[in-house]
Amino acid sequence: MDRCSNYLWKHPSTHTRQLSDVTGTPIELLTDWVRAGKFPSIYSQLDYPCESCRSPIYAGRLCHSCLGTFRSAALDIQTRVPRRATAGLFSVAGRVKGY
């Protein structure tokens, strides 16, 4: 980690892959460090893969595209699952039923 930090101090616009190549640090270890926030945010070119599609991202767990896909799927599921109106009752097609 010290070798990477020292290199970044001198070359702050280095990308993750470049840092791996120059320092000999495995890319998997570097991406874990970047994801965990081990480097200050001033090193804005350090990226890691989206957990869904593996495209490079700089914050969070998902890229904007995958995040939109998951949100759409969640909204679709939410509209299809019956909602509970009150305790012991739920609504199906606008009709309240008990169970």
Rank of each mutant, 00 (worst) to 15 (best):
G60V: 02
V22Y: 07
T31E: 15
Q45C: 13
P49K: 10
T14G: 05
D32L: 08
Q18C: 12
Y58A: 00
D21L: 11
P12D: 06
R17D: 08
L29R: 07
P26Y: 12
R35A: 11
Y43D: 02
P49M: 02
R54N: 10
C53Y: 04
W33S: 01
T16S: 15
G24Y: 10
C53Q: 05
C63L: 02
Y58P: 06
Y7C: 06
A59D: 10
P12F: 11
N6A: 14
S44A: 10
E28Q: 12
R61M: 03
A59I: 04
S52L: 14
I27H: 09
Q18M: 11
D21K: 13
P40D: 10
L19M: 04
G60C: 05
S5E: 15
V34G: 02
A36H: 00
L8R: 12
T16N: 01
R61K: 13
P56A: 11
L8E: 00
S44V: 09
W33K: 13
K38E: 15
T23A: 07
P26W: 10
R61L: 13
T14D: 01
S20G: 14
Y43S: 06
I27D: 00
E28Y: 06
C63D: 05
L19H: 04
F39S: 04
N6C: 07
S55P: 01
L8S: 09
T25K: 10
Y48T: 04
C63I: 08
V22T: 07
S5Y: 10
T31H: 03
G24R: 08
C53K: 06
I57T: 08
H15V: 04
G60A: 07
I27L: 15
S20C: 13
K38P: 05
P49C: 02
R61E: 09
I27G: 04
S55K: 14
Y58E: 00
L62Y: 15
K10R: 15
S52H: 12
Y43W: 04
T14M: 05
H15T: 15
P56I: 11
R54L: 05
Y43L: 00
I42E: 14
W33L: 14
P26F: 05
V34A: 04
N6F: 09
S5C: 07
D47T: 15
G60E: 05
V22I: 15
D32C: 05
H15I: 03
E28N: 10
K10N: 13
S44G: 15
N6K: 15
T14F: 07
V22F: 03
A59F: 01
C63Y: 01
C63P: 05
H15R: 13
S41D: 13
E28W: 01
